[in-house]
Structures are given as C-alpha cells and as structure tokens.
Design a protein around this nucleic acid. Structure first.
Length: 392
RNA sequence: GGAGGGGUUCCCGAGUGGCCAAAGGGAACAGACUGUAAAUCUGUCGUCGUGAGACUUCGGAGGUUCAAAUCCUCCCCCCUCCA
C-alpha cells in the first residue's frame, strides 16, 4: 500500500488544502479550495455519488453540467466493491473515470441511518453489513485508511450523527465521542496524507451550547475544513435555521465550511447566507428519479396530468440539455412509461438547477448583491420560507 | 352435436349464503423525499355526503331466503377437448 500512497502523493497537484477567500457579502463567502485533483470554486454544491456513481449519469454528463466535485461514501464503497480493490485499480478517480475532486463521507451517516445494525463504543462502531449481515468495525483510524485507499481528495472523520429528539445528556456524550474520534483520526495521519484533506465534523444536536462546545473543541486542531453535521435529520425548518445561523459564524473563517446533507435550494441559500461554502444532498438526484423537478418558477412534479400535452420546455429559463431539447409532455411520457432516459434527463436538469444556483450565488457575492438573490429564491418557495426557512 | 370450464368494480384476478362496496396486483390520480439499504414510499381509487350514512354494483331476466357475487330456473356470450 505504501507504494500506492506514494504514487497518489506524487500525482497530487500542489497547494492541496489551501482555501482562498475571493469576496464576502455580509457573512456570505466566495472562495477557492485547492485539492489534489484541482480547485473548486465556492460556494459549491456537490452531487452525491454514493457507490462511485452519480446515479443515472456518466462522467461526461457531470462535466457537461459543470460539476466540480462529487461525493463518494466510505461505508458503501468499503462493503462493495471494497477499498483495497479500488486502490489496486489506482483509486476511485481512475476506477470511476472521474478526474476531478472527490469528497468521501465517512460512514457516520450510515451509523445513524442504519442504526438497527450497529453498536457504538469508545473504540469505534461495530456494525452489520446491510448487504449480507457480515460484521465489521469502523474506527476513526481505519475509516481514514479506507478513504486514503479510495484516494479521496477530501476525507471526512468518523462521527456519530445524532438522531433528532436525542436529549441533552446523550447529545453531549455523543459530541464528546465524536470529538475524540476526530482528534484520533487527525493524530493517526499527521503528515502521512497531506494531499488527502481531512475535514472534522461538528455535532451538538439542537443545543446551542453543545454546538459551540463541539466547534471549540475542534477548531484549534489542524483540520483542512470543518463540517456541520447532524442537521436536517427530522427537525423543523425553523430549528434547523436557528442552529445553522448560530453555529456557522463560530467556525474559523480561514477554513472551508461544509454543511453536510443539505439541502433544498432555500436551505442552500440560507447556508450561504450564514457563511457556508460547501453543500451536498441527494435531493436533486433522488427527486429527479421520483419525478420532482426544480425550475426557475419553483418545484414541479412531472408526473402530473396537466403536463400530458404541454409542449413547452421543462424550464424556459434553463439552458440544460433536457430543457433545450425536450417538451414537458415528452418528459412526462418517459416518466410514466418508466423509461430509463427519464432518470438521466431529469437528473441532468435538477443538477443543472442546483449547480446554477450556487454559481449564481457566487457571482452575486462577488458583486455584492447576494441578498437580492436570497429574496428571489425565498419568493420561489413561499411555503418553505414561511416555515422558517427565510431567516437572515 | 357430445363433454367440461368460465363470465366479478378501468384491466388482471380472489371470493361460493351474512363479517362484501367486494382480497391482491396493475393502471390511473395526488403527495412525500435533505452526509442515498430509495427507478422508493404514502394516500385516494362505484356514486352522493364534511360526516354518520344513503344509494347503485359481481353477464341478463326471474326465483328461493330474514339475508344472494355466492343457491335454483331460463336466456346471452366466451374458452378447451371430442365428433
């Protein structure tokens, strides 16, 4: 493996880990994060490709969309096909033919979402595979090792994503464990994987003092970026926003900030408003496969009968391949007929929407007019805004 | 001509005296989805009514019964095999 690590290190571009701020507008930031496979311009939305594939799309599609970085998942790729198999093929970039940056989630979320299958201890988490029931152990150290084997550009530390409704005592105990795990992960690889950036994950549930404590305990350690975890796990929109706006300013300004698993277009705008740089979410791709599409006029469900004879484009203001080429009537027909093309065209469109949104946000920050964009997005999702998604 | 099987709510298909406006699929219609065990899940799905409930349905027409999709009679139609 050392030979593999050396080779990956040699191939890495210089300055990996450097984060440069280009502009700010209020708390909103526009920056650039350098990684081993190139730079990403923030704020950024990262399409989710859990098992080494953004569902329904090929790398060519992602390039056409202007995707700068995608996600992979440690838990899923470790179980299948296995990180060592991927390392033998030259890492996840080579294996999946994606040459731009990749961020891998640690499996902390699976510890949460597959909770019936696991047992948490100081050492790490013992869990059963959802695929075949076999028993495995994740520790802060081996999760980093797995991500190095994948040659992830941005590795996430193992954390516990605390379920919504957890009480103060549990949240506190969990946060302390997550903190100890993060420090162990960092200490295990102090210099050994400099080009595989390592982000810490802050937790703290829905208690402001615990959020602050989690951040304070991590900021002084040498992480390449900081994530806010444990939001959007079932809480109300208002609660989520309260903690988003409370926690983000506590993160160090000089490092990239990542809001994990979020969110809707309005959530993302709020995150940017609060000072977040990076987002990922399954919403655009999953909703694409389930028929919900995001447009410049709001959300639409392409399955609806009203589109059966609608010859207009999905979104007249969108320049994506889907909108340039096909009618709503055809897209509805594809979906209704269960044609696989529906997944690809819908995913292309929704990701175009999310990527355009963050690109516009970046431009508006550079030009000092971010607030106007925020107001506009709020007007597109009035119900969500009314539910508490219009703070700031 | 002979022997047998069958016609159920948009479709397929359970149901053979009351617990049946009728299982289960499908279709249709609507909704959900936030670090992806998701091409998944949920709801509605005879008519009227917010509701309790009322009314009309199981090929057709009669009949038996307190009660019929279910039992009886006749009729119509479909399928298989034999001639």
């Amino acid at each position: 493996m050392q030979e593999y690590y050396d080779k990956m290190t040699a191939q890495a571009r210089p300055h990996a880990g450097r984060f440069t701020l280009n502009a700010t507008d209020g708390a909103a930031r526009a920056g650039v994060l350098d990684t081993a496979h190139g730079s990403i311009e923030t704020p950024i939305f990262m399409p989710v490709g859990t098992v080494g594939s953004v569902k329904a799309l090929a790398p060519d599609d992602l390039h056409a969309l202007g995707a700068q970085i995608i996600l992979g998942n440690t838990y899923h790729l470790y179980l299948r096909p296995n990180d060592k198999l991927i390392a033998r093929r030259g890492g996840l970039h080579t294996f999946s033919a994606w040459d731009k940056p990749i961020l891998t989630d640690s499996g902390g979320f699976q510890v949460f979402s597959l909770s019936s299958l696991r047992k948490i201890s100081e050492q790490g988490v013992e869990f059963r595979s959802h695929l075949d029931g076999s028993k495995h152990v994740f520790t802060p150290e081996n999760v980093v090792e797995i991500q190095r084997n994948l040659n992830s550009d941005i590795m996430m530390v193992l954390d516990e994503c605390v379920p919504y409704g957890a009480d103060y005592a549990y949240t506190e105990k969990s946060l302390e464990l997550t903190t100890r795990w993060a420090l162990r992960a960092r200490q295990a690889y102090p210099q050994g994987c400099a080009h595989n950036l390592l982000f810490a994950i802050t937790q703290g549930g829905f208690f402001k003092d615990l959020r602050a404590r989690s951040i304070a305990a991590l900021v002084d350690h040498d992480f390449d970026g900081f994530a806010i975890g444990g939001l959007s796990v079932g809480e109300s929109k208002a609660e989520m926003m309260t903690h988003l706006y409370h926690a983000t300013p506590l993160l160090p300004a000089a490092k990239a900030r990542y809001l994990m698993g979020v969110g809707t277009p309005l959530d993302i705008i709020n995150g940017i408003c609060a000072g977040i740089d990076m987002f990922d979410c399954v919403l655009p791709t999953r909703n694409a496969r389930n028929g919900t599409l995001y447009t410049s006029l709001g959300k639409i469900n392409i399955k609806r009968k009203e589109y059966a004879e609608d010859d207009g484009p999905l979104d007249p203001q969108c320049q994506c391949y889907t909108c340039r080429t096909f009618s709503r009537a055809y897209l509805r027909h594809l979906y209704t007929s269960k044609e696989l093309l529906a997944f690809r065209l819908n995913s292309l469109h929704n990701l175009t929407y999310f990527l355009s949104l963050v690109r516009e946000a970046r431009e508006s920050i550079m030009q000092g007019r971010f607030h106007a964009l925020k107001r506009h997005i709020e007007s597109l999702y009035p119900e969500e805004a009314a539910a508490g998604g219009a703070i700031g």
